[in-house]
């Protein structure tokens, strides 16, 4: 069978390595994007003149990178590094791209979640001298999980698939390796069938984790 021919020791190693690249690329975008996105969401919730320029920047950043297609952002980064005369690997370019996009999308998801919590919770905390960060940490975020998690995990899963586009600038990840194996003479059905199974194997547990977290964090306490 062709499948067994495909699954030689070196090919499996090749696949595993590149599955790891895909996983790392997505995880990088999701985790760092999640942290930076949360920071942007918090910046956008501040008031007063002092943070006005920051708020403006955060707004422009999220709106820009949410509207530009993944592939365009990827090339944008690729050429930006070239113009800057920076010698970096395509993987680095890929990482920067996923963080930019992850940050923009997750900032909006987190902001929507934080703002979904009733204003009276903010007022009560403020009247008791909670700072903005204390309010978010102790009061708002625990109530916002139910609103944040479903779209966030939906985004993570889309993101894993979008990271395939990184192969366009030569990042050797899962889709790229599919093309390579296909070029070596394996049929498209078998190679991409295998790739499909691996993508599923990565995203399915993630979806399960999302569902589990939603259940755990988003109990009836948070309305």
């Amino acid at each position: 069978m062709e499948l067994f021919d495909l699954l030689t020791y070196y090919n499996v190693l090749f696949l595993a390595q590149d599955a790891l690249t895909t996983l790392a690329l997505s995880a990088f975008g999701c985790v760092l994007g999640g942290i930076l996105g949360t920071a942007l969401a918090v910046v956008r919730l501040t008031r007063g003149k002092l943070t006005l320029p920051l708020r403006g920047l955060a707004l422009v950043f999220t709106e820009f990178f949410r509207r530009v297609p993944f592939l365009v952002t990827l090339f944008l980064c690729f050429f930006a590094f070239q113009f800057g005369g920076l010698e970096v690997s395509t993987l680095t370019v890929g990482c920067v791209t996923v963080v930019l996009i992850g940050t923009a999308f997750l900032a909006e998801i987190v902001r929507a979640g934080l703002q979904s919590v009733h204003p009276n919770q903010w007022h009560a905390a403020e009247a008791m001298n909670f700072s903005l960060l204390q309010t978010i940490r102790y009061v708002i975020l625990p109530q916002a999980w139910t609103v944040i998690l479903p779209p966030a995990f939906g985004f993570f899963i889309l993101f894993i698939k979008d990271s395939a586009l990184a192969s366009q600038i030569g990042v050797v990840e899962l889709t790229y390796v599919g093309k390579v194996l296909n070029n070596r003479g394996f049929s498209a059905g078998v190679t991409f069938g295998t790739i499909l199974v691996i993508y599923f194997a990565i995203s399915f547990p993630l979806a399960r984790l999302g569902a589990k977290l939603e259940k755990k964090l988003g109990s009836s306490r948070t309305r």
């Binding site: 009276n120 919770q121 007022h123 009560a124 905390a125 009247a127 008791m128 001298n129 102790y138 009061v139 625990p142 109530q143 306490r221 948070t222 309305r223």
Partner: peptide, 18 residues
């Protein structure tokens, strides 16, 4: 000022997660 004056709101505003 907030340390000295505490307020109770019409809608209670209890923290729902606690």
């Amino acid at each position: 000022l907030r340390d000295r004056c505490a307020i109770v709101f019409q809608q209670y505003n209890l923290f729902q997660n606690l």
